[in-house]
């Protein structure tokens, strides 16, 4: 079973995001990046499937010049192979990313391609279905519970209200992973460091047209913190005020 996982880094949301002078992009100089949470679920699921069915897990990342640590972490977690795709100054839009991944996948064996269900930085959509359509493969997003059975996989797709559909999907296929059966395994930092020093990452060159067909007119920070009346002070003072509000409104007895 050839399992491929598409991985990327996204800005760390614990840090403040700022818009640059152009008004259409983030100020990127000081941004710190983390592995996209859902990609970690996708990788964990791939590793579990490999351990059950045998085969290989290959991680693919678009080469933005700063993905060595991301890929080394994948290897430290147990991936068999890491491949950098293309050469990009910065992360491209989803359509361009999908064309690049599709071009790379044409040269790499794949029975199942797993992506994160989404990435928080995404603008123009879901890379998984775009890659699938480029390659003429079926795709399912918002997937949990992947089970392999011969040349097909059984998967769950989640809907509102806790409803779940079960599908049988012919392989090869592309799945967008919502969550893994177990929490993503830990990669010891020492092991990641060692891999970064010793491992040779493979590289696949691709030539693809760029562009998503969207033009950004303006970027803005939604007015958070304006709508809410903010309560200042120590945790005790916050508790006092919340208790008072609930009493004033008759939500709790005075």
């Amino acid at each position: 079973m050839e399992l491929v996982v598409l991985v990327k880094q996204v800005p760390d949301l614990a840090e403040e995001l700022e818009i640059d002078a152009s008004g259409t992009d983030l100020a990127r100089e000081w941004m710190s990046f983390v592995a996209s949470e859902w990609d970690e679920y996708a990788l964990e699921e791939a590793l579990q499937l490999r351990d059950e069915a045998g085969g290989r897990v290959t991680c693919l990342a678009l080469d933005t010049g700063s993905v060595d640590e991301l890929l080394a972490t994948c290897l430290a977690r147990g991936a068999d192979r890491a491949v950098k795709v293309g050469a990009f100054e910065r992360g491209p839009d989803s359509h361009t990313a999908a064309r690049a991944f599709a071009a790379a996948l044409r040269t790499l064996p794949h029975d199942l391609v797993l992506t994160g269900v989404q990435a928080i930085d995404d603008l123009d959509g879901q890379v998984g279905p775009l890659v699938a359509t480029e390659l003429g493969l079926p795709h399912v997003s918002v997937v949990t519970h992947i089970k392999l059975a011969g040349s097909a996989a059984t998967v769950h797709q989640e809907y509102a209200g806790g409803l779940v559909a079960e599908f049988e999907v012919d392989l090869p296929a592309v799945l967008g992973v919502q969550t893994s059966r177990e929490a993503p395994r830990y990669a010891p930092v020492s092991r990641v460091r060692q891999i970064m020093k010793t491992a040779e990452m493979e590289q696949v060159d691709v030539a693809v047209a760029a562009g998503s067909g969207l033009t950004i007119e303006a970027m803005s920070v939604p007015e958070t913190g304006r709508a809410a009346e903010m309560i200042a002070g120590s945790p005790g003072a916050v508790a006092d005020r919340i208790a008072a509000i609930l009493r004033e409104r008759g939500i709790v007895k005075a």
Binding site: T24, E217, A218, S220
Partner: peptide
């Protein structure tokens, strides 16, 4: 955390 206005 961010809103963006786009045109096709």
């Amino acid at each position: 955390k961010i809103n963006v206005r786009v045109r096709f």
